[in-house]
Write a protein that binds this DNA or RNA. Structure first.
Length: 1021
RNA sequence: GCCGAAGUGGCGGAACUGGCAGACGCGCUGGAUUCAAAAUCCAGUUUCCCUCAAAGGAAGUGUGGGUUCGAGUCCCACCUUCGGCACCA
């Protein structure tokens, strides 16, 4: 199936010409529109040029570099989820930034790849289907059409022939194919190899057929070999407690659960054991962390990822449990005997059944361990529990298993636990310590068991105090007088036998070595990162290309088969009803039997996997497909991949700092290990745009009407919790400084304790006084001014359609860039849009004749040589704009262009050459007016591939510069000096200046500091 | 609690490697143009003191210290806001 025809868009037939001349300026009609537009009329200009770019295929980019190319540049936007509400003003922020970069780069001769597509699988379309019965594909297509229209309306120079949607069967065919690559891989952590990037690495994904099969497994037969392989695949099935969200009807990844609620919708989430697909991202934890190093990403994002991966180093240590059998039927052995045994063997891969293995980052505190804790789910919990404690432990474990994550975190963190009755022996000193079970130890981290050192761990201390367990100090803090109890930093060892006096770091090294030598422990590394829960129970996601074998009774045998790569894609089954099953059973399990079952050639009955992939899957590799979107043979041609990848600049929201970027890097590394891509990292440079907030709102506070415990909800802001704005008795206002927040979001008056509600104010209600905004009618009342995240409930959402309708796309683009630095959070301001729109009008009038009946050149624009001053402004502007675009400092670039227009507008005549170069500078930012001005200046072709203007530093320099003269660091006067004057020259100039002499009169000059071209400072007494 | 980012006019923000704080834009004030309005153009706009005015002076980049001839920028401590993580041993 061809992706283009499937969506009803015919494939292009002829190669794209770069440019073609539009009708000459004298023609009275253009693109079929009457051409009377003396004033700057954004709407007419914009639709005309959009049509022109489309028809002329101006931005289509063949994979072959054009003659004279200065190199490839792949600039990518994070593709949007096409929601039903259309484009948000946040989208065009990053998209405009990349569009400026690519338009600029084309003018610098770069061969630019700049595509756009749709992250189109996802819940909302399916929820819509549940409500209306409309197939999610229909809804998705409609939403995509809206998004495409809106993006085209903004004049972005995407190569639309590369457009793709993750929901295209021709796309998810390869998503499924990549899944099969992951499924076909195991991670060989010991494998050392040199990649195509020339780097030596340890650890690699390898084909599952290369997995060594232990002889004892081999002996069990082929089915067991297959099960063994299945356990080692990078994509595997695991029965694990998962986050089941009944409201959404799906299981969610840990990352999608926030405070025990779903990230999307805020619905409660339950813990439930379920058979789920997992991706072994933890195998890559180390590389995902260390290979961040060379990337040009913001340090803060790298740190966020590193924290998410959460690498920690420490030691695993074995503790013998008293009175337990080392093996079935064997008699219990004593501590000394065990230790003796261990020192002869070595630290075993798996501990004996009577040994608890713990993970600790502080092996130096081993002498301070006063008890042990196992996670409630720990496999040894049953075996070690004494009969006396059995009932209590069972009850505790039962209760813990029912606790959701919400309960575990929200319950004011009160520690709970239960003694097992068992004791372990501390391997370093033979001390008996009790073993507890408590849910503050997680089964999913480390070994699921800890040694507790209450003196030097906050959680252990809290637990020890609650249950009256002993506390032994073993680390002396470096600062005298600091209490050792509760000290968690590095210090010097005490009460630690032969190790006393060792600094923490050295102690750690020594004891880890000693434990290792005696077979009692070893160095260990752990990660906070967990394997990626990769299945969902919804319809609108990629089906898995996997079959489960059934036995004669139709029951799954646990053995799996993958679909053949040639048979992909696995399409969705036809379904009428999209209502969730109401239980964790996947939607696809309701599919027709033809889809669900088949019989293999060897006669084995097969049932399809009915889970679907999560939305993250499609976005894990779309940047690869853009380079070769129509390839029917491979997911990407290797030569094309080598040419375009990696992405040189990737811009998107910071909300994807961890999930999307980590997942995509993981997939990329698997493909790299398996030889399908040539780079180890997909995105060499990353920039996060800052969120755009709503317009700043003024808020006053009012004591609620008596009896009315009004909630301070946003929705109440217009009514003030029962008051109309004009009816508020003056004495009910409360100053912002007196408003305090109480439990549960309630606001109250600090003085009286009465509840307080927020009340939206208008600009004319307030005035400025002493650095605060205050109420005009009662100036002692301080009010609040803040911008909030745009949201439907707050009613402060700005629709880009409306902005374009009123001011034009160029103004919207320019404003979004002018608001402030790209990475920064910033509030929207409609009058700011008006400001940049006025600038564009001034630029228009500077070049075009406003009084003429038809678009014509302003008579002031003439073929004259620029004056020295004009030349200076021109070249200074070119230099600044060029450098600012390189730095992505678009707001300052626009300021410079405003200065240019402010300068040139007052000059007549205006040299045509300067106006032309200005149009070129402006065009990446405001491409429609840029093209139009270029045409007015007499050019017949698009400026999209015109060379970027160059500047001449010599023309920027002035003959003289003004230099401030300071006395004791304060500016006291100015003098003019020749530009190149050296220190001595400037000093003598300053000293001979009458004004300066007057300042120095009667004082002793101690020192003179001269910074040539900058300033002079006389230090006097 | 831990980690990160940021605090500059009424507002968004600018200020290269320490060197004239407030570029540019918004808003506001006054003026021109107009029958009037919109649009446009011109001037002013950190605060305080002094002055009829001009000129001048002082303070000023979250707070308090420090380094320096000189600090928005560097160092130390703290406060506030935003973002992330949150029993990860």
């Amino acid at each position: 199936m061809n992706v283009r025809t499937w969506r009803g868009v015919p494939a292009p037939e002829r190669p794209a010409p770069r440019t073609a001349p539009p009708p000459p300026a004298s023609t009275a009609s253009f693109a079929g529109i009457r051409f009377i537009m003396p004033r700057y009329d954004a709407r007419r200009i914009e639709s005309r040029w959009q049509k022109f770019w489309d028809e002329q295929r101006t931005f289509e980019t063949p994979n072959e570099p054009p003659a004279g190319s200065t190199g490839k540049l792949y600039v990518l936007d994070m593709f949007p989820y096409p929601s039903g509400s259309g484009l948000h003003v946040g989208h065009p922020e990053g998209y405009t930034a990349t569009d400026i970069v690519v338009r600029y780069s084309r003018m610098r001769g770069k061969h630019v790849l700049h595509p756009m597509g749709w992250d189109a699988f996802g819940l909302p379309a399916e929820e819509h289907a549940v409500r209306t019965g409309t197939h999610p594909r229909i809804t998705t297509e409609q939403n995509i059409d809206t998004f495409r229209r809106q993006l085209k309306m903004l004049g972005f120079s995407y190569d639309w022939t590369r457009e793709l949607a993750t929901t295209d069967p021709d796309y998810y065919r390869w998503t499924q194919w990549i899944f099969l690559q992951i499924f076909d891989s195991w991670y060989d952590a010991a494998h050392e190899w040199t990649g195509p990037d020339g780097r030596r690495r340890r650890g690699r994904a390898r084909p599952i057929r290369d997995l060594p099969i232990p002889p004892e497994v081999h002996a069990l037969g082929p089915d067991d070999v297959r099960r063994f392989q299945d356990q080692h695949r990078l994509a595997y099935i695991s029965e694990a407690p998962v986050n089941w969200c009944p409201a959404l009807g799906t299981v969610l990844a840990n990352e999608e659960v926030i405070d025990g609620k779903s990230e999307r919708g805020g619905h409660p989430v339950e813990r439930l054991p379920l058979r789920q697909w997992m991706l072994r991202i933890t195998a890559y934890a180390d590389r995902l962390g260390s290979e961040l190093e060379d990337l040009s990403w913001p340090e803060s994002i790298k740190l966020l990822q590193r924290n998410w991966i959460g690498r920690s180093t420490g030691a695993e240590v074995d503790f013998l449990v008293e009175g337990l059998q080392p093996a079935a039927g064997a008699p219990p052995r004593g501590f000394d005997e065990w230790r003796e045994n261990r020192s002869r063997s070595s630290f075993p891969r798996h501990p004996e059944p009577n040994v608890v293995r713990v993970y600790t980052t502080r092996p130096d505190t081993l002498f301070g361990a006063t008890y042990m804790v196992l996670a409630p789910e720990h496999p040894l919990a049953d075996a070690i529990t004494t009969d006396a404690q059995r009932a209590a432990v069972a009850a505790y474990r039962e209760q813990a298993s029912r606790k959701s994550d919400l309960d575990r975190t929200d319950l004011a963190r009160e520690k709970s636990g239960c003694f097992t009755g068992a004791f372990a022996v501390n391997p370093v000193n033979g001390q008996r310590i009790p073993i507890w079970i408590a849910d503050y130890v997680l089964i999913s981290y480390g070994t699921g068991a800890i040694m507790a050192v209450p003196a030097h761990d906050e959680r252990d201390l809290e637990f020890a105090r609650q249950f009256d367990l002993p506390v032994i100090e073993v680390v002396q803090p470096p600062q005298a007088g600091e209490s050792a109890i509760g000290f968690t930093g590095d210090g010097v060892a005490i009460h630690s036998g032969e190790y006393d006096g060792l600094p923490t770091q050295e102690f750690k090294r020594r004891i880890t070595e000693d434990l290792h030598a005696r077979g009692l422990g070893r160095e260990a590394v752990n990660y906070r990162l967990r394997d990626w829960l990769f299945s969902r129970q919804r319809y609108w996601g990629e089906p898995f290309p996997i079959w489960h074998e059934l036995d004669a009774d139709g029951k799954p045998t646990g053995l799996m088969r993958a679909d053949a790569a040639e048979s992909l894609p696995v399409l969705h089954p036809h379904m009428e009803n999209f209502r969730p099953t109401g239980n964790p059973e996947p939607m696809l399990s309701k599919a027709p039997d033809e889809w669900l079952y088949r019989t293999a050639e060897d006669g084995v009955r097969l049932k399809r996997e009915t889970n679907s992939m999560p939305q993250w899957a499609g976005s894990c590799w779309y940047y690869l497909r853009f380079a070769d979107p129509q390839n029917g043979e491979r997911f990407i041609d290797p030569e094309v991949e080598k040419y375009w990848l990696p992405v040189d600049l990737y811009i998107g929201g910071a909300e994807h700092a961890v999930l999307h970027l980590l997942y995509a890097r993981f997939w990329h590394k698997v493909l790299f290990d398996r030889g399908h891509v040539s780079t180890a990292e997909p995105f060499s440079r990353l920039v996060n745009q800052g969120m755009i907030l709503g317009e700043a709102e003024l808020t006053g506070y009012v004591r609620a009407p008596s009896g009315g415990a009004a909630p301070s909800q946003a929705a109440e802001r217009d009514t003030g919790g029962g008051f109309q704005r004009d009816q508020i008795p003056p004495d009910r206002w409360v100053s912002l400084t007196d408003v305090v927040e109480q439990a549960g979001d309630q606001l109250a008056d600090r003085v009286t304790g009465e509840p307080v509600v927020a009340m939206r104010l208008a600009a004319e209600d307030v005035m400025k006084q002493g650095g605060c905004l205050v109420l005009k009618e009662r100036p002692e009342i301080v009010v609040d001014s803040r911008a909030f995240k745009m949201s439907k409930s707050r009613g402060n959402v700005i629709n880009p359609d409306d902005v374009v309708q009123a001011y034009g796309a160029d103004s919207l683009r320019l404003y979004e860039m002018f608001m402030g630095p790209l990475e920064q959070v910033k509030p929207w301001s409609m009058s700011g849009v008006e400001g940049v729109s006025r600038f564009l009008s001034r630029a228009w009038r500077m070049i075009a004749d406003e009084r003429a009946d038809e678009v014509a050149l302003n008579p002031a624009v003439q073929d004259v040589e620029p004056t020295e001053e004009q030349d200076r402004l021109l070249h200074r502007t070119i230099k600044a704009v060029t450098e600012d675009v390189e730095k992505l400092s678009f707001n300052t670039a626009i300021s410079r262009m405003m200065e240019f227009v402010n300068g040139f507008s007052q000059w007549e005549p205006r040299p045509r050459s300067a106006m032309e170069r200005f149009a070129l500078l402006l065009s990446p930012f405001a491409p429609h007016i840029g093209e139009e001005l270029w045409r007015v200046l007499g050019h017949g072709t698009s400026l999209a591939y015109e060379p970027w203007p160059a500047f001449d530093a010599a023309r920027i320099a002035e003959a003289e510069v003004e230099i401030p003269v300071q006395v004791n660091g304060k500016v006291r006067g100015k003098l003019r000096a020749p530009t190149g004057a050296d220190q001595a020259a400037i000093q003598s100039l300053a000293e001979s200046d009458a004004q300066v002499r007057a300042l120095l009169d009667g004082k002793t000059v101690v020192k003179v500091i001269v910074v040539p071209g900058r300033m002079v400072n006389f230090v006097v007494k």
